[in-house]
């Protein structure tokens, strides 16, 4: 049988061999006492470098699209789009990390964590102190990306769990382009 894969190996493999990715996700936000304060779900697509799309479906519709140059956030219920340039760095948003390219070690100190509910975990602590989050933990099951946890300076945890994921699928290029719908306010952030 294959040698048990460490979290670090799975992280390397994800960044070197997985150039596009799609999955359903469920997201839960836990407050600093780790009690859940919000749950949401939807679908995401990723393509290296710096392209991703998070479509939140429940409890409300929100589209977050990184088209390689800019980050668009469209809140359907509130009828507003915000847009800002992507700094391109891996430090932009933890979600950008998954779509990033380049050496992780330049931006993070990386540490394997112990096995936890049959997943191998790694911890990435940003080297820049103003990144807005304390650290990121990524869990892999049988070498496949399973959980992304972002812990911010208040100890609030945003935990995203991926299901029915596909590695290196062919993704329509227009999936990562965004055009604000008619009549919706577009604001710069």
């Amino acid at each position: 049988a294959e040698a048990p894969r460490s979290g670090i190996d799975s992280l390397r493999r994800f960044f070197s061999e997985v150039n596009s990715y799609s999955a359903r996700f469920t997201q839960v936000v836990l407050d600093e006492r780790l009690s859940p304060i919000q749950e949401s779900s939807g679908t995401l697509w990723i393509e290296r470098p710096n392209k991703f799309r998070w479509d939140y479906e429940k409890p409300y519709k929100q589209r977050i699209v990184a088209d390689g140059e800019r980050l668009w956030v469209y809140d359907v219920g509130l009828q507003q789009v915000s847009v800002r340039p992507l700094s391109g760095g891996l430090n932009d948003t933890p979600a950008m990390l998954l779509a990033g390219r380049g050496r992780l070690e330049d931006n993070f100190t990386i540490k394997p964590l112990s096995m936890q509910n049959d997943s191998e975990w790694v911890q990435l602590s940003p080297r820049r102190k103003d990144s807005g989050y304390e650290d990121i933990r990524i869990g892999f099951a049988q070498g496949k990306l399973r959980v992304l946890e972002m812990v911010d300076g208040f100890g609030q945890v945003t935990r995203v769990t991926f299901q029915s994921s596909r590695e290196n699928p062919r993704i329509e290029p227009n999936r990562f382009s965004f055009t604000p719908p008619e009549g919706v306010d577009v604001v710069g952030e």
Partner: peptide, 17 residues
């Protein structure tokens, strides 16, 4: 209460929960 906020001042703004 828990909700979502969209702010706008001319062409600047943002979203937040």
């Amino acid at each position: 209460l828990r909700g979502r906020l969209a702010l706008r001042a001319a062409d600047q703004g943002g979203h937040a929960t």
